[in-house]
Simulated assay, not measured.
Amino acid sequence: MKRLAKWRLISLFAILALVLSGCSGERFVSALRPAGEVADMQYDLMKLSTFVMVGVIVVVMIIFIIIFFRFRRKDESIPKQVEGSHKLEIIWTVIPILLLLILAVPTVATTFHLADVSPMEKKNSKVLTINVRSHLYWWDFEYPGQKLVTSQELVVPTNEKVYFNLKSMDIKHSFWIPAVGGKLDTNTDNINKFWLEFDDKRANEAGNLFYGKCAELCGPSHALMDFKVKAISRDKFDAWVTAMQGIKEPQKAQGDLAVQGQELFNQSCIGCHAVTSENKMPETARTAPNLTNFGDRSRVAGILDHNKEKLKEWISNPETYKPGNLMTGKYPKMSDQQLDALAEYLMGLKVQE
Rank of each mutant, 00 (worst) to 15 (best):
R70E: 04
L98M: 12
G22A: 02
V54Q: 08
L32Y: 13
R73I: 09
R72H: 15
V94P: 01
S85Y: 10
E37I: 07
E26V: 14
I65N: 09
H86K: 15
H86W: 12
A17G: 05
D75V: 07
F28M: 05
V19F: 10
G22S: 05
L9Q: 14
V94F: 02
A35I: 01
E26I: 11
A109T: 15
A109G: 00
D44M: 12
V56H: 01
L9Y: 13
I66W: 06
A17V: 12
V29G: 14
R72Q: 11
K80M: 11
A39P: 02
G55E: 04
I57A: 14
I78P: 00
G36R: 00
Q81R: 14
I15P: 00
G25W: 00
T93Y: 03
F64W: 14
L98R: 05
G84V: 00
V82E: 07
F71V: 06
S21Q: 12
K47C: 15
I66G: 09
F71E: 14
F28D: 01
F28V: 02
V108D: 11
S85E: 06
M61P: 07
S30Q: 12
F28A: 01
V60Y: 04
Q42S: 11
D75N: 14
I91K: 03
A104P: 03
G25E: 04
L48Q: 03
K87Y: 10
R70Q: 14
V59E: 04
F69G: 02
D75Y: 09
R72L: 04
R72K: 05
L32S: 11
Y43R: 08
M46G: 12
V60A: 15
E26G: 13
I97E: 08
S49T: 14
L9A: 12
V38S: 03
E83W: 07
S30G: 04
F69K: 04
T107Y: 14
G25F: 02
S77Q: 12
F71M: 08
I95F: 00
S24Y: 07
Y43M: 08
Y43W: 13
A104Q: 10
I97P: 10
G55Y: 02
K47Y: 05
G36Y: 01
D40V: 06
R73K: 15
C23N: 09
F51E: 04
W92H: 09
D75P: 03
V105Y: 11
L12D: 07
I62N: 00
T50H: 07
W92C: 09
L98F: 11
V52Y: 00
V82C: 10
D44L: 09
I57F: 15
I91Q: 02
L99N: 08
E83Q: 12
S21C: 08
D40P: 03
L98D: 10
R73H: 15
R70D: 06
A35F: 00
S21N: 08
V94Q: 02
R33W: 04
